[in-house]
Design a protein around this nucleic acid. Structure first.
Lengths: 207, 207
DNA sequence: TACCCAATTGACCAACCTGGTCAACTACAT
DNA sequence: ATGTAGTTGACCAGGTTGGTCAATTGGGTA
């Protein structure tokens, strides 16, 4: 029962959510400390456990909440409407990179939720995470222009490998950016290479 | 001073090293437990601290040791001799995947050493890890056949992006394999796609 | 056999941290 | 002045941590 939490004023909610997000993202579920969370949020221990019955309830609430945040911001992007599938893939990767830059803690949170093996929590995370992946994958194939492909090309397979290589590449870029320059936000330099790559693929796959 | 440790019989050394490797790989430095290590290794607490003065000394010894293991097995591969740079890149990625499959704990260990931020250990890890990366990167460009490239192509840049995309792709593959089928070892199916990719790149970049 | 010394044990330690509780206090509306 | 909802933080028992050290074992030597 989190109804008590939902009735307090927005600013305090945000403060608590962000504090918990940061702690869980950094340490994972098991090693995150509720003491650290209340300290960061600037509230007392008792109050946190007044809003949430226990640590697990807090975590699950967070998980659901930030899935929603991502869904709303990510999927309402016009970039998913681009008819050319390769261009669309490129756009999605750029979008993802921008989101990772904007909300690094959220991504860390989900990664740790996915990586963390030692806790009973994992089973309780409903399929929402998996669902998020599935629906993003489905969106890639939604209303694409298939007339351009050479007839002898296995389209799905081609798109899939391009998706994977691009995802891999963007991960490399993010990793690089994370450890070096933290100020820039557009990645235009990094993704210039991708443009070349995309053009190349088109000439290879399109008739 | 680890001289005591180096004088005991090989089998016991291995047992201790592997126990420590597993624990550190799984939990990272901070949360790894020396109790768990001695239990896993089948020795007493006192003995471990007879060989190593403290936890940190054990960890640093491990780090050095497994860097050596990787160096010896990885770099003595004839795959680095392949003259065609794209084929070489493919070979290296396959090699890396095979190594990750063969020694998952070692890779987890290094990843956790690189990721773990909260400890004073990180600073003490000499540049050996970074060095390993550098030398593997240098080996890619060693004695490659440059005559094939079109004149107007920025060769280094081209190789670099291919390297990154391939690395990204192989990471995706490993991630997939890790979470599904744990028995197979050759990845031939997964890397068939890469062959197509490599051929495509050659026609694009070579004259 | 008696002795020595190195290898090995594991009970023990103080320090610390954990999630969670609850009696008490505050602020504010009636 | 009274009631009530919001909020505090000292406190708890349980657990884990890295590290110590007196005691035991076992094999070699004389």
């Amino acid at each position: 029962m989190t109804s008590k939490f939902l009735n307090i004023d927005e600013e305090k909610q945000q403060r608590i959510l962000n504090a918990a997000l940061n702690e869980f993202a950094q340490k994972g579920y098991d090693h995150a400390s509720t003491n650290a969370i209340v300290k960061l949020a600037g509230i007392s221990k008792g109050l946190l456990f007044h809003y949430f019955n226990n640590k697990k309830e807090l975590y699950l609430f967070l998980h659901k909440h930030f899935i929603d945040v991502l869904q709303n911001e990510f999927f309402n992007e016009e970039r998913f409407a681009e008819p050319d599938v390769f261009e669309r893939l490129k756009n999605i990767m750029i979008l993802k990179s921008q989101m990772m830059k904007k909300y690094p803690e959220i991504f860390n949170f989900f990664i740790s939720a996915y990586t963390e093996t030692s806790s009973d929590i994992k089973n309780e995370l409903d399929d929402s995470h998996h669902e998020l992946m599935q629906s993003s994958y489905a969106k890639i194939f939604e209303n694409i222009d298939t007339t351009m492909f050479k007839e002898n090309i296995d389209m799905k397979r081609a798109i899939q490998i391009v998706f994977w290589t691009l995802e891999g590449y963007s991960n490399q870029v993010m990793e690089k950016v994370k450890h070096t320059n933290q100020s820039d936000n557009d990645f235009s330099a990094e993704f210039a290479e991708v443009d070349l790559y995309i053009q190349m693929l088109k000439t290879a796959f399109y008739q």
